[in-house]
Design a protein around this nucleic acid. Structure first.
Lengths: 231, 231, 231, 231
DNA sequence: AATGAATGAGAATTCATTCAT
DNA sequence: CATGAATGAATTCTCATTCAT
């Protein structure tokens, strides 16, 4: 199976991150100088700093410094500070959704797919503690942001999972009395909870997160299974 | 089942909330002059405003206005704005823990207790959309706060749930392969996720939240059960 | 000769043990109990606190606490915080002037009187480091105060010294080319400078201050003397 | 005699005042754009405003306005309001000390040097009533400031004068019974007293200050002289 | 495009003073 | 007279954003 961790923050394969405004005239291919372009550099710096200090406690100048650019440069690539946070979410989560969709199309049993979903969501986090913290903690800092921007994307993400559950119900392997959407939310919450604890606890060894994920998967799978006993 | 929803914002059982400075020594029952005491009034106003605007976007003057006191009065009862948020958390969550503990001591089957825990956690939230939003969303706004103050209390809360799971394992009704702490975290996360969605979605009808809780309970109970099939 | 330190600030035993809630209705003549009346208590407390923290850094509530009265009580005896400082100056300096005048009327040679003036001014300070610091340092904190209130009193004080110098000139023992007022100012300044250094240095042993004063007196006396050499 | 009044507020010899943060590395001579650099402009404005209203009564916004900069700009060059006052003291007094030292190295009789010291101290003030008032009056406003920052510099200044007196004693022209340090303090106090009176009196004609200084010098010189009469 | 000095609106907090008890 | 909780005007300082270079 392909895909292994498609969201690593730092790999070079970022050239699909459409450089918003700059990129004036010179054909500035990402490989131009081997390094990521400035927008990406700012985004990564922001993830790092937001994770350490939180969105509100982070100064724009700190992001700039971490990215190695001048304060004003931030505003050439982002409308304002909020926009940086939203962009992080959009860039990363929309990628997750995309991968999630293509994974689920690749067939397999319900159990396999379900576990795959969990792996992916935590794969997003594993080895990327900063992004994990930003996505799970920081995004909640502004309910305005959360409501305006995040919800649609988040809902989309949940729908993918809910779709999987619904499919399982149609296939007769999942209890029909469950509401797929609620299930999806609960799953997200459970994984998020585990990840937050892991992240706030210091990130520690990634194996721990994996084991935790496995237990959560197991509980959910057993919990949703339509079995003879209960029919 | 005894005492439903012990966390209603306005009940009289508040006498343990020691007012900071003011409070003449004269026994001043809450009903002394018709209104609850000032600290409590400020706390409630803060819950309302934080829920609507978020912690950072809320001005101290707005809390004061909502509480019907002068700006400076806030500082007679709280060290600063942060302290108001922390106090909300402490006042409410510590009460939840207390009730949780006493509930679990009252006996019953594992299933009954497990469902009771869930009911209590959501009972905290249901009908108190504002508090729900503050506790689940706002508290995350300051990782400093989260780490310094919330974590110990939160951990304590999780330990109560983990204890229940461990007991279930000792009694042979819960799968022994599960880590009680991870379970507790996942459960909190799942319920939190459901509650946040409900809260952000507008709170809606409280029956919805109950039904959702019931499904989550059901999934978890089935998921953790030690049954013949798998032995 | 009389004089011994007529300005003792706190001889009454300064045990700041707050005298409960002060004398409610009982006829409260000042001599009633041998103790200072409330106004005096506040004044002394203020001297103590102003000396330690400076006028601006001192909170009215701190004075109240040090005086063992309620904040509001201050305002029964003084118009406002400024008035407390001004009152300290007026109470103490006007006493100094009175004593100075009566001393100078008692005859003696110019040298004797001159030295007497210096002793008195330092007598005000010696053993009363707090008052010294308030008078020499704190009073300058508000140029408004200094100009409005202090200057007249201060000028009056200087005039007494200038009068002594002028008398010395009439008697032919002081150089006639000197401006008595300038002399008076310089003398005040020199003594003040010595006292401030002593006060800020920690007050130390009072003998030091006396020895310093003696040298200053000696220099000034030699410096102003009309002698054969220069005639 | 060389370099009269080396402390005029506006001369170009300011290049040793290292600007805090701004200041591009490009050599930016003071005359770069016609005006003195911003730090200096703020310092001068502060001297003006502090002198008129006193340190505590001066609002940061007033300094900014007087300097023709935005409020926030102050904080690009100074840590806070206190720092502005301290900087005034440090900039100006340290310059005075420097000049004083070089003057005293230039030889001359004791009398000449002594008068030179007085001229310099008052030369600092003459024509600069504002600075005089700030240095003599305002600096005393915060005993914290006074003790932390001013004392070391002030002591250094006094040591220079004390050194001159000690030298006079070694040369046999000054009474050996005098303590040089006390003398230095008394002289500073006397000049300060004269200057304060002059400044508070309205500054008036500078000739007055000169005459006063001359009289003080004369009194001290006569007072400290070792003459045959007393040997 | 990039810079970073300058801006100035905005917010938390303090504390002298009042006044109902 | 005395109290001290409450008040709210006033002030420092921060920091996102702009714009001349």
């Amino acid at each position: 199976m392909p895909n292994e961790r498609p969201f690593s923050a730092g790999d070079e394969g970022e050239e699909d991150a459409a450089p918003a405004r700059p990129t004036k005239s010179k054909a500035k291919r990402a490989s131009d100088r081997g390094g990521p372009d400035k927008r990406e550099r700012i985004l990564r710096a922001a993830i790092r700093v937001f994770a350490r200090k939180g969105f509100y406690a982070t100064r724009v100048s700190e992001i700039a410094k971490a990215a190695g650019v001048a304060d004003g440069t931030i505003y050439l690539y982002f409308k304002n500070k909020d926009d940086v946070l939203v962009s992080i979410f959009e860039d990363r989560i929309s990628k997750l959704i995309k991968v999630l969709r293509s994974e689920l199309e690749q067939g397999g049993t319900f159990d396999e797919k379900f576990r795959r979903v969990i792996e992916l969501q935590l794969g997003l986090l594993e080895g990327q503690r900063d992004l994990a913290e930003v996505v799970t903690v920081n995004l909640r800092q502004s309910s305005r942001l959360l409501k305006q921007y995040a919800t649609p994307l988040f809902t989309e993400y949940l729908e993918v999972i809910a779709g999987l559950v619904a499919q399982g119900q149609r296939e007769g392997v999942v209890r029909p009395d469950l509401n797929p959407r609620i299930l999806a939310r609960a799953l997200w919450g459970a994984l998020d909870g585990v990840a937050v604890t892991w992240a706030l606890g210091g990130g520690g060894e990634s194996g721990q997160l994996h084991r935790a994920a496995s237990q959560v998967a197991s509980v959910f799978l057993e919990g949703v299974r339509r079995n003879a006993d209960r029919a």
